[in-house]
Design a binder for these strands. Structure first.
Lengths: 124, 124
DNA sequence: CAGGATCCTGTAAGATACTG
DNA sequence: CAGTATCTTACAGGATCCTG
């Protein structure tokens, strides 16, 4: 079941890698509010580079989580929108986010204690 | 709420990055079965390098998800174990894994269709 | 046994410039 | 507007050797 050669496990770890990458969750959450155009997304996620936004969207599209609709006008218009699959992913992500929020303090505390001990052993 | 300067959001994205890294989830799942020694973990996760296992465990320890117990015998013995916090993380992770398993086929299908179209446009 | 230190490599990802 | 192409850098992560 945890065998890396198991294709299901490979899909899961690929998914986790995608979730873990720097922009995927941010984009999914932003699109959660409704369809958005390319530059709308850029504006709402100011820190993302154009390149990274493009790549992230391509990956999400490839995985069937986001749909891409081109309107061949001038200027061109491209709308991105969560698919049903993409929307269904929001629930487990939200579970993780909730866990994180519930435990921010515990984690921070642990980190502070850990770093303090490390400093002690350096000082000593 | 999605403001990157918000410390809660930073914690969340740090968590997501940790979840997304190559080994964290594997280690947490492996430790889910009970405490393990360093080389037990290595054996159960054959693909992990010594270095990466050490680093992953340090990070988990720093975040308070894993406890590290040294028994100063010869040879030395070090046991790693999920803390309560670490165990509580298993639930949301499991939510994600379940989602992935439920949707493996949909995702694979989407990828296949996407790649097929890409090949078409190259061929054309 | 558990892990620190070092070296080396591939890839992620930012900045910049150009195009239909 | 919505990208693609190219260059460059930073860091993740593997291999290897060494130590208490």
């Amino acid at each position: 079941m945890r065998d890396p050669s198991n294709p299901v496990c490979r899909t899961i770890s690929t998914l986790l890698a995608r979730i873990g990458d720097k922009w995927t969750v941010l984009v999914v959450q932003t699109l959660g509010a409704g369809p958005k155009r390319f530059n709308e997304l850029r504006r709402e996620i100011p820190s993302v580079s154009q390149r990274m936004l493009t790549l992230t969207l391509r990956n999400l599209e490839r995985d069937g989580l986001v749909s891409r609709t081109v309107t061949p006008s001038i200027p061109p218009r491209v709308d991105y929108e969560l698919t049903e699959l993409g929307q269904s992913l929001q629930k487990p992500i939200c579970g993780l986010a909730t866990w994180a929020m519930d435990n921010v303090e515990a984690i921070h505390g642990a980190q502070t204690r850990f770093d303090a001990e490390r400093d002690d052993s350096i000082a000593a």
